Computed example of a mutant assay.
Amino acid sequence: MTRAEPTEARLALAPGARVGIIAGGGSLPVEVAAGLVRQGHAPFIILVDGEVDREADFAEYAQERLALEQIGSLVSLLKRQRISHLVLAGEIRRRPRLSKVRPTLGLLAIIPSLVVALARGDDGLLKMLTRGLEKRGITVVGAHQVVPELAASEGTLTTAAPRQSDWRDIQAGRAAAKAIGALDIGQAAVAIGGRAIALEGVEGTRGLLERTRDLRGHGRLAGKERGVLVKCAKPDQELRADLPSIGPETVEAAHAAGLAGIAVEAGHALVLEGPATLARANALGLFIVGLPAMEPANGQ
C-alpha cells in the first residue's frame, strides 16, 4: 500500500518571502530545506552549534552558526538576513545554560519569562520562543506547513496492517502517551498485551525502544509477542515545533524490540525519509498507521 496524499495544506509563501531554518539534529531540517528549494525559496540555515549531525547537506545554502547561549542575538540575526518566516526543525538535545547566555537589552526584558518557560518543560519553552519571535515580526511556521508531504496521512501506510489485538495496544499506548504528554514528559509509549509497559522519558524514543527490547525477557513480558509504539502530540502542544516523528531508525529499533508496528496521529506527526521508512517497514513486516488526530483510535 502506498502512502495517501497529505491532508495538510501547503503554506502559501509570497514571492519575496525569505525563510530561515533553525537546524538541529536529524533529517528534518534537511528535508525542509529541500522542500523549500522545490518551491523556489532558497532557505537561510541557522546551524545550532553542537546539534547538527548532517552539516554537509547544508553546504549549498547561505548559513550562520549560533550557539544556544547566543539566543539573545537571534532576532537581530533574522532581521539582518531579512527573514520573514522561520521553521524550527530538528532535534535539540540540551537546553541553554542561563549562566552562559550573553545578555542583550531585548533578552533582559524576557529573562523572567524564560526562567518560567524552562521550568515548565520543553513545550513551555517552545511556546515562549515562538510568541516572542512573532511579537518581533517573524512568522513561525511548522515543518508540516512548509512541506506537508512529511505529515503522516490517516490510515494504514504499509503493506502490513494492525490485527484486532494490535488495536487494543494502540488504544492503550495512545492513552498513555497522551497522559505523559499532558505532563510535558514525552510523546511516546509502548503497549504490549493491551497495556502500556514503557513510557518515553528524557532519553527519547530510541531509549524507550531499547528499554522495551531489554524488558522482553523479564517478568510478565516473557513470551509476549507483538506490541505497538504509539507517538502523539502533547495536549495543547505548540504544533509548529517538536512534532512527533518517525524514520528508518525508528522502524529498525521497533523491530529490534519485537514490536508489530507503529501508530502516530495523522497530520500531527512526521514521517521522515518517507519512502525509505515505509520500504524498511514493509521489508521487516511492520505496520505503520496514521490515527485520526481528534478521535479515539479504533480499528475502522
Rank of each mutant, 00 (worst) to 15 (best):
D166Y: 03
H144D: 08
D122R: 15
V146A: 09
I170C: 10
G142R: 10
V147R: 05
V116A: 12
W167Y: 08
P148M: 07
A176L: 10
R163K: 11
A177R: 09
E134D: 08
A172N: 06
Q164E: 15
G142I: 00
R120E: 14
K178M: 11
G155E: 07
L126S: 03
G137K: 00
R163V: 00
K178F: 08
A182V: 04
A117Q: 09
G121I: 05
V115E: 10
A151W: 01
T159G: 08
I170F: 12
T156G: 09
G124A: 11
R120K: 14
Q171M: 13
Q171V: 15
L125T: 03
R174W: 01
A172G: 06
T139Q: 13
V147K: 01
K135C: 07
A119K: 15
L125W: 04
G181N: 06
L126G: 02
V141I: 14
V147C: 04
V141A: 13
A143Y: 02
G173P: 10
G137C: 00
K127W: 00
R174K: 12
V116I: 11
E134K: 07
E149N: 01
A179I: 04
L129V: 14
V140D: 02
A161I: 09
K178P: 02
V140P: 10
A143P: 10
D169A: 13
A161V: 12
R168T: 06
G142N: 05
D166P: 11
D123S: 07
L133D: 03
G132S: 13
A151N: 11
R163A: 13
V116G: 12
G142K: 02
L126V: 10
G155R: 04
T130R: 02
Q164F: 02
K135W: 09
L129K: 04
G121C: 01
A152P: 04
T158G: 06
G142Y: 01
L133H: 08
I138R: 05
I170Y: 14
A160P: 07
A172K: 03
V140R: 03
A182P: 06
A172D: 00
S153A: 15
L114G: 07
G132T: 03
L157W: 09
E134Q: 14
R174A: 08
A161D: 01
S153D: 03
P148G: 13
Q171H: 11
R131L: 14
A117R: 06
D166V: 06
E149S: 12
G124D: 09
E149D: 08
A179E: 11
A179Y: 02
R174T: 14
I180G: 01
M128D: 03
Q145I: 02
D169T: 12
V115T: 12
A117W: 12
S165G: 05
A117D: 11
Q164K: 15
L150Y: 08
K178T: 13
I138G: 10
L114A: 11
L157A: 14
M128S: 06
K127V: 02
R131K: 15
T156H: 03
A151I: 10
V116W: 06
R168M: 02
G124F: 05
S165I: 12
D166T: 01
M128P: 06
A172F: 02
T156Y: 00
M128C: 10
V115P: 01
A175S: 09
A151Y: 01
T139S: 15
D169W: 09
T159D: 05
G121K: 11
Q145K: 10
L133N: 05
A176E: 13
M128A: 13
P162S: 08
L133P: 07
A172Y: 04
G181H: 05
